[in-house]
Design a protein around this nucleic acid. Structure first.
Lengths: 232, 232
DNA sequence: CTTCCGATTTAGTCATGGCTAAGTTATATC
DNA sequence: GATATAACTTAGCCATGACTAAATCGGAAG
């Protein structure tokens, strides 16, 4: 009856493709080392896998140069990312997870849920387009609406913005959440210390100093509110 | 403080322990071959794993004799079974799966969900005690209330009973469901053909002939209603 | 042009967990 | 008691996917 599928795509392969997809959006070239760092693997392990992915026609791999997803590879990556983001949203909305607890759970579940499971939670959530971090959820046919990509670190003193999403791992999410910096929240930039020093921001009644690196993880939608001179 | 994970327990180990647990309830001795058949593995693969499980003190293994779970092994088995049964119920209750679709999904999910996930769906379901097949759900501290174990095949002609659960794989479940033989449903035994022949049962307005083997998979709670005469 | 160094790949190892082929054990039967 | 046979184990193989150590590439500096 339902005989097992062509299990060429393993969880490990899915993780690599997902990582490469994300890195492609951050970097000009996706290198072995960048992948190794992101996945916490040794570089040779990555080289190994890249050769395998190339054999499977999931990436274009040029030794010493880097990799790029093929359309087939991108399709797999987007499916995994769709699973991940739907799961994160479902865990929060349906099961009451908190914002910073969902990532690890989704990382494990994303590899094992069926098409049916995906479809059922998609329906249960009302076919959402954004995940809890504000990232767009790829559609079933592999389209990903681009998100705004202004970073908190790029704002000028005096500007305000609404947090859209926060990148980075669970530790970053937890810390950022503890400061009240959650999606939908408005922040005001009070100061930018020189020499790559911290940003001081106001969130509600509180003030926090954020390292530059941290502020690169926080993506915002700028609010062009009345600044100094009477704006239009 | 949640202790850091003892990653000695792999999904493969969980599958073996779960299978051994189930077989212990069905058989006097759990043999290599019985495990191999249930898991669809070759016998030597099982022998191999049994040695590993014995090293981990999860089973008592006597070569050529069979295995038995240790308390530690039983604990793991019950945790996995708890995951499985909670998941099956959740898939049906919360996500609208049908009765015969849940097994495979639960088989994959049971190995990856966290304690938190288990707790959340347990709460969402109102801390249930029976899964959709009528099997009891082990408690978090590893207790499993015994279920009634009368089989449909053991009923006399003229007896009626309510189906409690159906054992067997997805193919059995699917077929049995297609006959309308679902938990909560009442069946009436109309005939038992001699020489191990089929049972004829009435379900609602329909009659079906069931092989003896199939009728062994169907567990019932007998109903002592008025005895009827033969024929009709 | 050479030299150096970090990035990368090659080579070879290990654990997991399947497999087949071939021996060994237990046991039922003559 | 001898032996056939099914059950079981041993031995050895394979793919995955991680690792370290060592060679190699390639770009920036001298």
């Amino acid at each position: 009856m339902t005989k097992s599928e062509d299990r060429t795509i393993t969880p490990a392969i899915e993780d690599y493709l997902k990582t490469i997809y994300v890195l492609q959006q951050e970097l000009v070239a996706v290198t072995t080392t960048a992948i190794a760092e992101r996945l916490n693997f040794a570089a040779p392990s990555v080289t190994n896998m890249l050769k395998k992915l190339a054999d499977l026609h999931l990436v274009h791999y040029t030794p010493y140069q880097g990799v790029e997803l093929t359309p087939a590879g991108e399709k797999v990556a987007l499916e995994v990312i769709r699973h991940h983001r739907l799961l994160e949203l479902y865990l929060i909305e349906a099961l009451g997870y908190s914002w910073d607890q969902v990532h690890d759970e989704a990382d494990r579940l994303e590899h094992v849920i069926s098409e049916q499971f995906e479809e059922r939670i998609d329906i249960a959530l009302g076919r959402p387009t954004l995940d809890p971090h504000g990232d767009p959820i790829p559609t079933k046919d592999g389209n990903l609406p681009a998100a705004d990509e202004t970073r908190l670190v790029d704002l000028e003193v005096g500007q305000s913005a609404v947090i859209v999403r926060v990148a980075g791992g669970a530790d970053v999410l937890r810390y950022v959440a503890s400061l009240g910096l959650l999606p939908q929240i408005t922040v005001h930039v009070l100061d930018r210390a020189p020499f790559n020093g911290p940003l001081t921001v106001r969130v509600g009644e509180e003030r926090h100093a954020l390292g530059r690196e941290l502020a690169e993880y926080i993506f915002v939608a700028p609010v062009m509110e009345r600044v100094k001179t009477k704006g239009d």
